[in-house]
Amino acid sequence: ENVVSAPMPGKVLRVLVRVGDRVRVGQGLLVLEAMKMENEIPSPRDGVVKRILVKEGEIDDTGQPLIELG
């Protein structure tokens, strides 16, 4: 899985990584606010952040691509 998608609709509060960062499975990639709760979205695998497809403050839909890993 190279693309991390939104598991729920919500607002992107914080992006915790930058392009080029090495990430490990379970590491937080970004924080979504949904139903007044903050949810940290973890990396599904080890890899390198290739692209960040959303910006802080954006509203996303379920299934929307958020981050691409390489």
Rank of each mutant, 00 (worst) to 15 (best):
E40N: 07
K36V: 06
E1H: 14
L32S: 01
K55A: 12
L30M: 09
T62K: 13
K36T: 11
L66Y: 03
P7I: 07
D46V: 06
V15C: 07
R24D: 05
K36A: 13
G57L: 06
V49K: 00
E1Y: 14
D21W: 08
K11S: 04
V23P: 00
L30Q: 00
I59K: 07
V15E: 01
E56Q: 10
L32P: 00
D60V: 15
E1M: 14
L13R: 05
R45S: 09
R22E: 10
I52V: 10
T62N: 06
K55Y: 12
M8E: 05
V25N: 07
G63H: 08
E38F: 10
I67Q: 01
V23K: 01
N39F: 15
L69T: 01
N39H: 15
G20L: 04
R18T: 10
V17P: 00
R18H: 10
E40L: 15
R24W: 10
E58D: 14
K11M: 09
R14M: 07
Q64T: 14
V12P: 01
K50P: 00
V25M: 13
V12I: 13
L29H: 00
V23T: 02
T62R: 12
A6K: 04
R14F: 06
L66G: 01
I41Y: 03
R45A: 10
L16C: 11
P9C: 12
I59V: 12
P44G: 04
V12A: 00
I67N: 01
P7F: 06
I52M: 02
G63M: 08
L13H: 03
E56Y: 09
V4E: 02
I59H: 11
L69W: 04
V4M: 04
S5Y: 15
R24M: 10
G63F: 07
N39P: 02
V15A: 01
K11C: 08
L29S: 00
G57Q: 07
K11H: 06
T62Y: 13
N2Q: 10
V49E: 01
S5A: 12
S5L: 15
G70I: 13
E1N: 13
G57C: 09
V54Q: 03
G20Q: 03
L53M: 12
Q27S: 05
V3E: 05
L66R: 01
I41L: 08
I59G: 05
G10K: 03
V49L: 02
D21I: 08
I41M: 04
V49W: 00
V48I: 13
M8V: 08
S5G: 09
L32N: 00
V3P: 04
K11I: 11
P7K: 09
V49D: 02
T62W: 11
T62F: 13
D60I: 15
G70N: 11
V48T: 09
V19L: 07
L53K: 03
E40P: 07
A34L: 11
E40K: 09
L29M: 05
E56L: 12
L13P: 00
I59A: 08
V17A: 01
Q64R: 11
R18A: 11
Q64N: 08
G28Y: 08
N39C: 15
G47I: 02
E58T: 10
V23H: 02
R51N: 09
I41R: 01
I41T: 02
L66H: 02
L53F: 15
K36Q: 13
P9N: 09
I67R: 01
D61A: 13
G20T: 04
D61P: 08
M37K: 12
D46F: 07
V3I: 14
L32R: 01
R45L: 12
M8P: 04
D61T: 13
G47L: 03
L66F: 05
R18N: 11
Q64M: 12
P65V: 10
L53H: 09
G26C: 06
V19C: 08
G10C: 11
P9W: 10
R22S: 12
Q27E: 07
L53C: 11
I67H: 02
S5D: 06
E1G: 12
R45W: 14
R51Y: 09
R18S: 12
V19S: 03
L13A: 05
E33D: 07
R14N: 05
V31G: 00
P65K: 06
V12S: 00
K11P: 01
P42I: 13
G47D: 03
E56W: 08
V15L: 13
D21Q: 14
A6Y: 06
E40G: 04
V12W: 00
P42F: 12
E68T: 09
R14A: 07
G70T: 14
V25S: 10
M35P: 04
G26N: 06
Q64Y: 10
L69M: 06
P7R: 07
G26L: 05
P9S: 12
P42T: 14
G47M: 03
D61I: 13
V15Q: 00
L53A: 03
P44Q: 04
L13D: 02
K50A: 10
G20A: 04
L32K: 01
L32F: 15
P65C: 07
K50T: 13
V54F: 08
K36L: 12
G10P: 02
N2R: 09
E1F: 13
L53Y: 13
G28V: 15
G63W: 07
G47F: 02
Q27F: 06
V48H: 08
R51W: 09
D21C: 07
E40Q: 10
N39L: 15
P44H: 09
V4F: 04
P7S: 08
P42S: 11
I59N: 09
R24F: 11
P9K: 13
V49M: 00
L30H: 00
V19H: 04
V4A: 04
V48W: 14
R45N: 06
V12T: 03
L30I: 13
A34S: 13
D61G: 11
R51S: 10
R45Q: 09
E38G: 05
D21V: 06
S43G: 02
L16R: 02
N2W: 15
S5C: 15
M37S: 10
N39Q: 14
P65I: 11
T62Q: 12
K55W: 13
G63Q: 07
K11R: 13
